Amino acid sequence: MKNTGGPLEGAVVAVAGAAGPAGRAALLRLAEAGATVVGADADAERLASAVDAARYAHGGATVTGDTVDLLDLAATRDWADRTEKEFGRIDGLVHLVGGWRGSASFTATDLADWDVLERLLIRTVQHTSLAFHDGLLRSDRGRYLLISAAGAGKPTAGNAAYAASKAAAEAWTLALADSFRKAGGEQGPGAAAAILVVKALVHDAMRAERPNSKFAGFTDVNDLAEAIAGVWDRPAEEANGQRLWLTPQP
């Protein structure tokens, strides 16, 4: 049943990386909360399926999809500008673009993995944050949310490229938070940039593939979606620049 009168009622929220399991869950939860949801992904077919599922689950909800190359800054800016122009405002950017590469040991690290992860996990954050910065400031409830991993602060030998990429994305997001803080002046930030930290994500298809796995400490994508929506319940000043832990802090 659609929630009415909550902080997401009537909000316009963009979701980057909307076609994956976490993206699908976020589209559903945000639409349920009364938001207009604009998803973007490079995979047009999977994006259309995710958008259709959210529309079907919440009749009357406005859920749209744009095929956007988030590695192209101009294309990302066009997406942000087009979204704000079409819907009159932009109240959130949820960054769910993911990827993982690892190795058996530190010395076995393939630096080609860094090249891939730098683009997926850092460059897309740079582009979406730069593109949506001003629009989020114009909102009375702007939120930029990065999904990160506990390994960013406690990297393991075989995850050097992944952990370093996540740590860089976190640092970039915290710089965005500082920009929001400075823009707010004495009144405090009107927009917030926050980091939701998980160990890893799990969804139903993973459980079906590995029925004997416990996925200890993993966060279900539906719980992540709930936490994403919950950030709008927090005042901007309270959420801005925070790491919000969904797994025990190491």
Rank of each mutant, 00 (worst) to 15 (best):
A164N: 10
M206G: 02
L224K: 03
V198M: 08
F218W: 14
A239H: 14
P235W: 14
A164W: 05
T156P: 02
A229Q: 07
A157P: 07
T219G: 09
A229R: 15
L196N: 04
A157T: 07
E226K: 15
D233N: 12
V231N: 01
G230D: 15
K199Q: 12
S213D: 15
E237R: 07
N222D: 15
S213Y: 08
E237N: 01
W232V: 00
N212F: 01
V221H: 09
D204S: 06
G241E: 05
P235C: 13
T173Y: 04
A194I: 06
I147A: 07
A167Y: 10
G241Q: 10
E186I: 01
K166Q: 12
A236G: 07
G241S: 04
V198E: 13
D204I: 00
A164H: 06
N159M: 08
K154S: 13
S165R: 02
Q242E: 10
D223N: 13
F215T: 08
G188T: 10
K199V: 02
E238T: 10
K154Q: 11
G188H: 12
D220S: 07
T173V: 14
Y162M: 05
E186M: 06
A171R: 12
R243G: 02
G217K: 03
A208F: 08
A160H: 03
G158P: 06
M206A: 14
L146C: 05
Y162E: 02
G158V: 10
P189R: 01
D223Q: 13
W172Q: 02
A183I: 00
R234P: 04
L201R: 00
A168W: 08
E209A: 15
L201D: 13
K166V: 11
